[in-house]
């Protein structure tokens, strides 16, 4: 069994960095989507979809973290 502290740290890094990555990506898309919505409100649905697409990154990170945690 590996060191529990190291595993916990790795899990934290997995979630933290992927979280930052999706936040950064969503920021870029989100501001563009808001800009588009200001011109045409009907784009809300499409804007929302495009904005949340990078969220998958953090979900992957979370799955990795959970797998690590389960192996603790």
């Amino acid at each position: 069994m590996a060191d529990a502290g190291l595993i916990a740290l790795s899990a934290g890094i997995a979630v933290g960095i992927t979280g930052m990555a999706s936040a950064w990506a969503e920021k870029e898309i989100g501001s563009a989507a808001i800009g588009a919505m200001a011109e045409n409100e009907k784009l809300f649905g499409k804007g929302l979809i495009l904005t949340v697409i990078p969220e998958t990154i953090v979900i992957f990170g979370m799955v990795v973290a959970i797998l690590l945690w389960l192996n603790m």
Binding site: T56, I59, F60, M62, V63
Partner: peptide, 9 residues
């Protein structure tokens, strides 16, 4: 696959 894993949310 990404779609399926997305449901883990």
């Amino acid at each position: 696959m990404g779609n399926i894993i997305s449901y883990t949310r």
